[in-house]
Design a binder for these strands. Structure first.
Lengths: 105, 105
DNA sequence: ACGAATCGTAAGCGACGACTTACGGTAAGT
DNA sequence: ACTTACCGTAAGTCGTCGCTTACGATTCGT
């Protein structure tokens, strides 16, 4: 649910492939698993992890379950990195300034 | 080096703690490891992973090695998430429009 | 020059996670 | 009603990763 789970979910290469396949639009499980190196149950497990992390949304339609990328989950992770980037830049500038001020003594 | 390594590096909770400690500014290994739940060698190993991922920079000064967050590495990961977010939004809008257009037939 | 401090690396161990096969459950087709 | 298709879950195996202890290398202090 939090950004930690999103990072953990995206850490796995197979799950990143799944995300890439969903970039163009929503897909059912079979279509996602088709042509991928792993079995369909494995894909199902990955989809569960991604869903629990808030990165995917599910829409059961008749026989199949259609998965889609959830912009909210991605945005949450995006905001975390934004604050990290801000802090990193600020610390970087501060360190540079400190060095320029002459920290010799 | 690539954004994949950055994600993998940030997936570990201990490494995220290290990153948080470096948000305020650069620190030597001892200061980072101090008060953390794990041993100093463990921290060293994590620092290596983070450095290899391009998230940290090292500056050996005399006796110690000072680590700092590298804005470039964070930015690389940030860009990846930005494109993912754009695609997710576009796919989301397209799916909504398709549903509004009446996909009955 | 000698002792202390700071840090990286090697080896070994335990735990978590990704994958497979097997199974059950629900919806669509005839 | 029966068969087929689609999908999630359970159990088990195997590799990988994070941690610890032990050690070696480099630098500072006196």
């Amino acid at each position: 649910m939090a950004y930690q789970d999103a990072i953990t979910a995206l850490a796995d290469p197979t799950r990143r492939v799944i995300i890439d396949r969903l970039r163009a639009g929503p897909l059912p499980v079979g279509a996602i698993a088709d042509g991928m190196g792993v079995s369909r149950p494995a894909v199902s497990q990955h989809l569960k992890v991604l869903s629990d992390a808030g990165l995917l949304s599910v829409t059961p339609t008749g026989n199949r379950r259609v998965y889609a990328i959830s912009p909210d989950g991605v945005d949450e992770l995006r905001r975390y990195l934004d604050t990290l980037w801000d802090d990193a830049l600020a610390a970087f500038a501060r360190a540079a300034e400190e060095k320029a001020k002459g920290n010799s003594t």
